[in-house]
């Protein structure tokens, strides 16, 4: 970092310029696996946000005590603990969704997006900045998953349902979701992600570059 960003810029960077999914292409496993509906995407995003916030908080608090060569061990320990807490909480309070997400909640442990934030930001910054960064990254992750979830659910199921069962949108009966079934299957995840990342890259390149590299 040439120049120190403000906390707000740090927060915003995780959502826009450094969006973990659409720009950094991190955390692809949940992105591809569970974005077949908006509800799954939101719950997965919330769980990952909780974990990245707690991991950044703890790492930042202990940053002066952590021995460099055991840092990965400490990150993993922290992340695994909070993923397990998130998993138990989902099973207790959102049982049906947690059944659908299956093994993907425990798999947040290996989401490199989270360990990356601990290493790049929390180990070197104060609590305020680390939290701003974690919330930014978490929201950016949730947003990206939700974009994919909305596109895939509308095309693949012909409707859009909010968590809690409220139907937000239903395509007219003339639309046959069976013809688009591929959208909620794995290939649909790759196709949608490719198109969305393409659009994001196009928009990023259109922005005038302030300083030529």
């Amino acid at each position: 970092m040439a120049e120190e960003m403000s906390h707000f810029q740090q927060f915003k960077s995780g959502i826009v310029e450094n969006n973990p999914v659409l720009v950094q292409l991190l955390g692809m496993c949940p992105t591809l696996a569970i974005t077949n509906s908006l509800e799954n995407a939101l719950v997965m995003g919330a769980a990952a946000t909780f974990v990245v916030v707690m991991s950044n908080l703890i790492t930042s608090l202990l940053r002066n005590l952590i021995q460099p060569h055991v840092r990965i061990l400490i990150f993993t320990l922290t992340i695994a603990t909070f993923v397990t807490i998130a998993d138990m909480t989902l099973k207790a309070h959102l049982y049906q969704v947690s059944k659908q997400l299956g093994a993907f909640v425990p798999l947040i442990i290996v989401n490199c997006m989270i360990i990356c934030r601990a290493e790049v930001v929390a180990l070197k910054s104060g609590v305020g900045r680390s939290l701003a960064d974690a919330f930014g990254i978490g929201i950016g992750f949730t947003l990206a998953l939700s974009i994919l979830g909305v596109i895939r659910e509308i095309l693949g199921s012909g409707s859009l349902t909010l968590p809690g069962g409220m139907k937000l949108l239903e395509l007219p009966p003339g639309f046959d979701p069976h013809a688009w079934i591929i959208m909620i299957l794995p290939p649909g995840a790759f196709l949608t992600l490719g198109v969305v990342v393409g659009v994001v890259n196009y928009l990023r390149q259109r922005k005038p570059k302030e300083v030529p590299a």
Partner: peptide, 21 residues
């Protein structure tokens, strides 16, 4: 630090477990 955190996290997990089980 690792040993201490291990202990603290174990206690945290045990608490969550007994609260949700």
């Amino acid at each position: 630090l690792v040993v201490l955190m291990g202990g603290a996290f174990a206690a945290l997990l045990a608490t969550t477990q007994s609260a949700t089980i």
